[in-house]
Design a protein around this nucleic acid. Structure first.
Lengths: 329, 329
DNA sequence: CTGAAAGCGCTTACAG
DNA sequence: CTGAAAGCGCTTACAG
């Protein structure tokens, strides 16, 4: 039986045990209604041949693949890794496998991955969107593949969505800086086309307004795909001129790491608060106050919503928003 | 065609275009030998019905699933996340999907995941072992599912393996502390039953011996699953008595984070070097010198080895060891 | 260039 | 309790 690629099939077992394949199927799947004596005979043949059920055939016949797909920006990023782990745990509880793919913020890649997963007939999909147009998913959803969006809302279609309250979180962080006495506060965020970046920027503006502070001076807001060089320039701009900022709110973990490096290298003395927690943030000098998302909960809720749909739930699309919390350090 | 779960099949398309399914198959798969005019007719039917090939049926017939499985300790850990991303990139280049699972260092869970993946007939498996006995994989390998082990070697079977030079890396780190003038150096590592933990401990002892230093005093070595409490106790022990340590080598990133917290909280003045790099390690005061693994390369090599086997390579099992590098800060 | 038949390895729906 | 037949949706191996 050790011929590469030559696995015994249910038919082989049936021959060996001199029964019908259906009987083997019953034994393999622990279905009732097989005499113990016959079941034993089948079990011996299974052992003798080293038989293992081919789930990929089973899946074809049954129509459900017991697998879900997860598309995110980059599984290598700690935020998405934690999210992914939470999804995996829920999937495992439903005996489903998890197929993952990284879009690298490329809409076309997101689409290719999503369609490839659907072609494999995953039972459902969780998408952290990179695309600005999800109409390509409409036929898939109509054909019975539910989709849940996480971290960012879908575009041009309606579907279950779970988000962090990004604006609210940013308000918390910026209000904290204001409470500490800062009046001129800069904002360094990611590309403004990214939903979370835009929402956090909005929260920043709201906090200033709520405190009766003037809107940020020109140059006090920088939003772009984070790079050391870009952030260096942005900080330089914020710290020069007649009204330099005394504090900066960082829009996410990657921005924060770069800002921290810049602050250290140029020995800048500005206060910082960041959206997203960072490993070791509590050990920095001074420790970094952050607005933390509940990443695990985000993943858990997204997966729960998906499995509810897979289980047949038919209600209208839902939108859940989870709070972010201020971690003062 | 918007009836949930009712996707059109190749047969539906064939009826609609009044051709044989084989002709539809040719068009769908861009096989040559279809008159342009007929191909066009088929394409129109495909569009009209919203047909999408069911890859799960294709896979059954062809025997290859174009998917691989990856089993690691925890996809939520940044080390494994980076590893996973590197594997995904290689898989994508081979048009293969990646199925991931976390074993949580539980041998039984590793086994369940591996067998579940094999039941789905993944084309190959990458395993970061938790188990001490991999004989359960022998039938799967014999049946044509190649397995590559990464980060830690397999137990009781031979198979392709890619490792970091853990002992060599630890020697580098400990030698650096010695070069800085330290003579009494402690070691705080993970559970000694984990291969990487044991190897790093060995490298630590080798470095002491190579420098002509005496073997560590009783209590200067602590190896256990990392917990704040356990590490607190271990450090207390190392720092009391007649010959307290002046430096500590941390066995991995999780240990390092806990040791750093303890050092900060109790304002201990000891030198630290850690195996594994940490985000922000350069921004600590003082910055943390580390022995860095090339995690991405580890994942890339593992995946390359696997796809070579999937491609038919038949040579004897290979073992690759990648160097670790000292990052002085 | 086109297609009818068989089969991948299971499960479903029946019949006995 | 047991099994023969049909079928999941494709591709393979032929025949014309």
């Amino acid at each position: 039986m050790a011929i590469p690629g030559a696995r015994p099939t249910m038919r082989d077992v049936a021959h060996h045990a001199r029964v019908a394949t259906k009987t083997v199927s019953r034994v393999v799947n622990d279905e009732p209604g097989v005499r113990p004596q016959m079941a034993e005979r089948v079990r011996q043949s299974i052992a003798a041949l080293g038989y293992r059920r081919n789930d990929s055939a089973r899946v074809l016949r049954r129509g459900q693949t017991a697998s879900i797909g997860l598309i995110m920006e980059d599984i290598g990023d700690p935020f998405y890794a934690a999210f992914s782990r939470a999804v995996e745990d829920v999937a495992a509880r439903h005996d489903a496998l998890l197929i993952t793919g990284s879009s690298d913020e490329d809409p076309e890649r997101e689409r290719m991955l999503a369609l490839a997963f659907c072609a494999r007939r995953v039972d459902g999909l969780i998408v952290i969107p990179a695309s600005r147009d999800h109409t390509y998913l409409r036929p898939e959803i109509a054909a019975g593949c539910p989709v849940v969006f996480a971290d960012r809302p879908p575009h041009l279609i309606e579907a279950d969505t779970v988000l962090t309250d990004n604006a609210g979180g940013a308000r918390l962080g910026v209000s904290h800086l204001i409470a500490c006495g800062h009046q001129r506060i800069g904002f360094v965020g990611d590309d403004a086309r990214i939903y979370t970046a835009a929402q956090r920027h909005r929260g920043y503006l709201d906090a200033l307004a709520a405190a009766g502070l003037p809107p940020p001076a020109a140059g006090s807001v920088a939003m772009a795909h984070p790079s050391q060089e870009g952030i260096s320039r942005a900080l330089r701009r914020m710290l020069t001129g007649p009204a330099p900022v005394t504090a900066v709110f960082c829009g996410n973990n990657r921005v924060a790491a770069l800002v921290l490096r810049e602050v250290r290298e140029r020995a800048l003395s500005i206060a910082l608060v960041s959206f997203d927690d960072l490993e070791l943030a509590d050990l920095l000098a001074p420790p970094l106050t952050v607005v933390a998302q509940n990443t695990t909960e985000l993943g858990r809720v997204a997966a729960d919503m998906l499995f509810r749909r897979i289980g047949g739930h038919q209600g209208p699309p839902e939108r859940v928003e989870l709070p972010a919390s201020l971690v003062v350090r």
